[in-house]
Amino acid sequence: MCDYSLHNVASRPAKVGDKVISAKFSNSITGGFAAVGEPDVAVCLRPGTEIAFDQDVVYSRGFGLIPPRFGYVTTPQRVARFRQVGMHRPNTHHDALEFPNGEIVLVTMLREGLTATVLQLPADPEKKPAVEIAVRQDASLTA
């Protein structure tokens, strides 16, 4: 997903192996992930997507719209799972990363220029595995 404030930015869904970079977008009040080499295209992650950063993750404790008032924080965690938080509040930032230690950081708070690789996309519950469909078809043929 891409946060509500990225709706005016060109976007595409993430793919396994994508190299992404944390970025601020010129048509938006927020930040997100851009494809490396495509700074004006937001890469949208679905909840459950796992990414691995190339370096320790640095993020702001500020409010996102102004330079960080309280400085930056660095976490040595380099693997995170994308999730959405605060969905009951429609006009707030929802895109977040959850780290293995339980720490949750809004994507818009990431320092610009952090690079990461998309490791794994979540399973799509709408799609049934081909094997399961084939087994059901075989069973219906013998009935």
Rank of each mutant, 00 (worst) to 15 (best):
residue 30 T to K: 13
residue 119 L to V: 11
residue 70 F to M: 12
residue 79 V to Y: 04
residue 135 V to N: 02
residue 111 R to F: 04
residue 83 R to Q: 06
residue 55 Q to G: 10
residue 142 T to W: 03
residue 38 E to V: 07
residue 25 F to N: 02
residue 6 L to F: 11
residue 9 V to Q: 07
residue 7 H to W: 13
residue 21 I to R: 12
residue 46 R to E: 15
residue 47 P to W: 01
residue 77 Q to T: 05
residue 143 A to L: 04
residue 84 Q to H: 00
residue 79 V to G: 06
residue 24 K to Q: 13
residue 84 Q to A: 09
residue 27 N to M: 15
residue 130 A to N: 08
residue 138 D to T: 01
residue 26 S to G: 07
residue 117 T to V: 15
residue 127 K to I: 15
residue 21 I to K: 14
residue 42 A to P: 01
residue 102 G to R: 14
residue 23 A to H: 07
residue 17 G to R: 03
residue 140 S to M: 01
residue 92 T to G: 13
residue 67 P to W: 02
residue 93 H to Q: 11
residue 135 V to M: 01
residue 13 P to D: 13
residue 72 Y to F: 11
residue 140 S to C: 01
residue 15 K to M: 13
residue 78 R to D: 03
residue 25 F to H: 03
residue 67 P to L: 09
residue 52 A to K: 10
residue 72 Y to I: 08
residue 55 Q to E: 09
residue 122 P to Q: 04
residue 38 E to M: 12
residue 19 K to F: 09
residue 11 S to V: 11
residue 96 A to V: 11
residue 21 I to Q: 13
residue 29 I to W: 10
residue 20 V to L: 06
residue 9 V to G: 04
residue 97 L to N: 08
residue 116 A to E: 14
residue 116 A to C: 11
residue 16 V to Q: 12
residue 105 V to L: 07
residue 57 V to M: 01
residue 31 G to L: 03
residue 47 P to L: 05
residue 23 A to Y: 07
residue 123 A to Q: 11
residue 66 I to G: 13
residue 55 Q to K: 06
residue 68 P to H: 03
residue 24 K to S: 07
residue 128 K to I: 13
residue 98 E to K: 04
residue 10 A to S: 09
residue 26 S to C: 11
residue 80 A to H: 05
residue 28 S to I: 00
residue 49 T to L: 07
residue 62 G to D: 09
residue 4 Y to R: 11
residue 7 H to P: 08
residue 132 E to T: 04
residue 75 T to G: 03
residue 111 R to P: 00
residue 64 G to Q: 02
residue 111 R to V: 00
residue 34 A to E: 04
residue 130 A to R: 08
residue 64 G to C: 01
residue 125 P to E: 05
residue 1 M to H: 14
residue 121 L to D: 04
residue 36 V to N: 01
residue 122 P to S: 03
residue 52 A to I: 15
residue 137 Q to D: 10
residue 38 E to L: 15
residue 121 L to N: 02
residue 19 K to H: 12
residue 5 S to F: 08
residue 89 R to G: 05
residue 62 G to K: 10
residue 104 I to P: 06
residue 86 G to M: 12
residue 73 V to W: 00
residue 32 G to M: 11
residue 106 L to H: 10
residue 82 F to D: 08
residue 95 D to W: 00
residue 65 L to C: 03
residue 9 V to L: 08
residue 1 M to I: 15
residue 19 K to V: 07
residue 101 N to D: 14
residue 110 L to Q: 10
residue 97 L to R: 09
residue 49 T to F: 04
residue 143 A to E: 00
residue 83 R to N: 04
residue 19 K to R: 14
residue 67 P to D: 10
residue 14 A to L: 10
residue 7 H to Q: 14
residue 117 T to N: 15
residue 56 D to Q: 08
residue 15 K to Q: 05
residue 14 A to P: 14
residue 16 V to Y: 00
residue 122 P to Y: 02
residue 31 G to H: 00
residue 74 T to Q: 09
residue 103 E to A: 10
residue 136 R to G: 01
residue 142 T to H: 01
residue 14 A to V: 09
residue 124 D to N: 09
residue 69 R to W: 14
residue 17 G to A: 00
residue 127 K to F: 03
residue 58 V to W: 08
residue 78 R to K: 14
residue 51 I to R: 03
residue 75 T to H: 01
